[in-house]
Structure formats: structure tokens, C-alpha cells
Amino acid sequence: MLELRDLSFEVTPENGAKKEIIRNINLTIEDHSLTAITGPNGGGKSTLAKLIMGIEKPTGGQILYNGQDITNLSVTDRAKFGISFAFQQPVRFKGIKVKDLITLASGTKLSTVDACEYLSKVGLCARDYINRDVDASLSGGELKRIEIATIIARNTPLSVFDEPEAGIDLWSFNNLIKVFEDMKSARENSLIIISHQERILNIADNIIVIADGKVKEQGAAKNLLPHLLSGTGGCKFYQ
């Protein structure tokens, strides 16, 4: 179980005044659940995910994971604790191969066949990609799918995906939904998926709407979805 208590994050740009990006967020993510986080651009979703992974340090509040305070743990320690994060904009490397990255993610020695299996899950023809560098030669959508494959390979109790659908074509998107449904039906791991996509919101157990650094609304998907998708709710949150 992941608990955010009164979590805040503010930045002070060199020239300007303090800016509150996350404002006193209180949230609980239950085990074995799929939580979708949605809300307008700039609302603070990616920042929240980075706070959970430890990439940003909160300026106030606490993060508890399975009852333990992880607020001051490093990214590495959180990763070892069982938290994974798929970046909204995945990182490129000169000289690191797709297979190397998936192997590092899995934390074990992987055979080429095993590594290929993860790529196939995200709709990539594995043989074409396994020995390529994760560098500027990959297209945006290819990179995004490889990023998701690394998270599948990690197979941790908590996985956070930041807009996994962005830049992904229709065919692969169907695959992706299946990947999340499989992860969900396995009922072993919890997923947090930041998304603007109705089809992802549809497979979620819970939905959280973040806007202006705050939780605007949260609840079971079946209760929230109808009014989120009807114009009125949408207008309220996306203005």
C-alpha cells in the first residue's frame, strides 16, 4: 500500500516567486489495484509520479510504502523496494542496446529469447530491435514501447506509467490495453497509470483527478467515469 500524507512540492525559480506544484495531497493506493490519474496538462501528474519514485524530493509531507516511511530514500532504494516508473519522455543512451536495458531492468541474466518476449508484448518485432542502441535512431513510439517493456521486465509490486499511450499507434495501443489488463488480472501488482485515454480509464479500478496540484476528485471508476466523460464533468476539470 502506498500512502501520500500531506505531500507538497514547491519550486523557487531563480528570478521569480515560489511556485506550488503539488499542494498538500493526501492519497492511498491500495494493493492489487489499477489506479488511473488524469487531469489537465500542467496539473502536476508527472511531478506526483516523480515524487513517488524519488526523482523529486517533496518540500513537505510524507510518503509511506507498506507502512514504511520512504520519504528520504534514494531512487535506487525505492527501485529495490519494488517501485518502477515508466517516463513520460523516455531517456536515450548512446551505446546501450535494447537488450542491455531490458536485462538491467529484469535484474537477472536474460537470454535473447526472454528479452524478445518482453518486446513482443509491447508489439515490437523483437528481432529487429533487440540489438539496436536505445539512441536517437529510435522513433518516439518505438522508444516509448521499449520503456514499457523495461517496466514489464522489472515486474515489481508497484508500477507507475506516465502517459504510456502517448505517441503509440492504434494497433500497439490495443496491445497495450491487453498488457495492462493482464497485469491487472494477475492481481499481484498495483499499477498507477497517468493517462488522458478513455480506454485506459475504462480498465481502472479507481480514478484520481489532479488539477492545479490538488486532488480534485477521486473514487471508484464506475462511479466517477460517467460524469467525467459527460461534458459537464469534463468542462469542470479541463477548463
Binding site: I55, T76, A79, F85, V91, L101, L104, T150
Partner: peptide
Amino acid sequence: EQIIKLMTLGLT
């Protein structure tokens, strides 16, 4: 960000 990405995979 390259270092951070690898740290999210559990590397120091």
C-alpha cells in the same frame, strides 16, 4: 536523466 533512469532500474 540517464543516471536517474538507470537508478529507477535499481542501479546505484
